[in-house]
Design a protein around this nucleic acid. Structure first.
Lengths: 219, 219
DNA sequence: CACGATTCTCTTGTATGCACAAACAGAATC
DNA sequence: GATTCTGTTTGTGCATACAAGAGAATCGTG
C-alpha cells in the first residue's frame, strides 16, 4: 500500500473537490485521523501538503480551514488561466505535428454530436480531452501543470460552465475556431481564439462566483 | 518565535537557492534535524512542504533530493515565464494609475546610474523592485504568485543573468521600452517589450542551463 | 570464484505522549 | 449590567518511541 499520508491527502482532496467539505469548514487533525483510521501524523502531513498547494489555509496555532476564494482571487485566477491557455494554444499551433493536428481535428468533429444534443455529461469529458490534446501539443509540461493546478483550484465549485446546457454548443463552436487556427499554423490566431474561448466560459464562471455566499478570507 | 518547521523550511530554502545545496544532493531527515537542532518532525514537515512546491523531489521510502532541472524543464519554465511576465506587463499597462506610472518611471530613471556603471549587485536589487512594481500594477496576485514561484524554481543556479556585466545595461534599456509602453497605455506593446526583455535574459540563462552538468532526473 | 539468499543496518513512515498557546466560559468586580 | 481576569478546555506543535521497507554486506553454496 502507498503511504497513508498520501491516501489521506488524496481522499481529503476528493472530498474538498466534490464539495463534501465546503470552504470555511475547519479541519482538525484528530477527527481527520479518526475518520481515516490513522494517527495524527499522516493526517497532519496531508493537511500540510494541501496547504502548500493552496487548497486549505492554515493560521498558526489555529488549524486549517478549507480555503475559500474571494471574488477577487477567483477573477485573478480566471484572468491568469486565460493567459496560460492562450499561450498553450499558441505553442500548440507552432509545434503540433500534422498527425496530431489531424487527430485533434477528427476528435473535434466526432464530438459535434454530443454538442448538438447538449449532452453536457459526455461533452465535459470530450472537452477535457480536447484541452489535454492542446497541452500535449504545446510541448511544455510546466505550463500544462500550471494550467491543471489553476483549474483544479477553481473547480471548488464543481460547476463547470459546461453544465449550462446552452454553453455546450457554443463551446464546441469556439473549439472549432481554435482547431482551424492551429491547423493553419497561426499561433496568434490560435491564442486569440483560445483566449476568447476561455473567457467565454469564464463569464459563466463569473456569474457563479459572484453568486457565491460570503467566502472565508484567507488571512 | 515562529514555528520551528517554518524556520527549517525557510533556511533550507535559502541554502538551496544560494547553492549550498546543489541539485541531486540528498537530504535526510535526521541530519537535517540535527543541523537545525530540532527533532525529526519539523524537519520532515519542512521537506514535505518544499516537495510540494517542487524544490525537492521525493521518492517514497527513499527520501528527498534537491530537485534538479532537466534542460527540457528549464526551457519550459523559461518559456512559461515569458508568457506570464508578458501578461503581467499587459495588465499593468491597462491598470496602473498615473501616480504608479510616474513612480515606475522615476525609479527607472534613478536606476540608470547603476546600469551604466555595470553595478550588478545594485542593479539586481533595482531590477527586482522594477518587476515587483509591474506585478503590483497588474492587480493580479495569483499571476504574481505564479511568476514568483517560477522564478524561485529557476534560481537554483544562483546565476541571475544580471551577473553578466554586459547584460545589465541592456536590461536597463529594455526596461525603458517597457516603461514607455506602459506609460502610453499600450498593453500589446508592453507585453511585447516585456516578452523580449525576459527572453533576452533567458538566452543568457539558456547558456547557463546548457552548460550544466548532467542533472538528476526527477522520476 | 561467482552468484544468490539471508541478515543486518539504516532510513523512512507511523504512533503516541507532552507542553504550550489560544479560545471559551464563568465568576468577580467596577 | 458590562467588562475583565482567570481557570479550563481544546487542539496544535514538537519530541520521541516503534514498525517496516529498502539497500548493503556477509555468509553459504554451487
Amino acid at each position: 500500500m502507498a503511504k497513508a499520508s498520501d491516501k489521506v491527502r488524496e481522499l481529503l482532496e476528493r472530498e474538498i473537490r466534490h464539495g463534501a467539505l465546503r470552504p470555511g469548514d475547519s479541519i482538525d487533525e484528530r477527527s481527520l485521523a479518526e475518520r481515516f483510521s490513522v494517527s495524527r501524523t499522516p493526517a497532519r502531513e496531508a493537511i500540510l501538503q494541501l496547504a502548500a498547494s493552496g487548497l486549505v489555509t492554515m493560521r498558526p496555532r489555529h488549524g486549517a480551514v478549507v480555503a475559500g476564494l474571494e471574488v477577487k482571487d477567483a477573477i485573478a485566477m480566471m484572468e491568469t488561466l486565460v493567459a496560460l491557455e492562450g499561450e498553450a494554444a499558441a505553442l500548440a499551433a507552432r509545434r503540433m505535428s500534422a498527425a496530431e493536428v489531424e487527430e485533434l481535428s477528427r476528435r473535434h468533429a466526432e464530438s459535434e454530436a454530443a454538442a448538438r444534443e447538449h449532452d453536457s455529461r459526455a461533452y465535459i469529458d470530450l472537452n477535457a480531452r480536447f484541452h489535454a490534446a492542446i497541452y500535449a501539443g504545446a510541448r511544455n509540461d510546466y505550463l500544462a501543470g500550471l494550467i491543471r493546478n489553476t483549474r483544479s483550484r477553481m473547480s471548488f465549485f464543481h460547476a463547470s460552465s459546461l453544465n449550462q446546457r446552452a454553453r455546450v454548443e457554443r463551446s464546441w463552436d469556439e473549439h472549432g475556431g481554435v482547431v482551424r487556427a492551429i491547423a493553419s499554423g497561426d499561433p496568434a490566431a490560435a491564442e486569440a481564439a483560445m483566449r476568447d474561448h476561455i473567457l467565454s466560459g469564464g463569464r459563466v464562471y463569473a456569474d457563479l462566483v459572484a453568486a457565491m455566499p460570503r467566502e472565508t478570507s484567507a488571512g
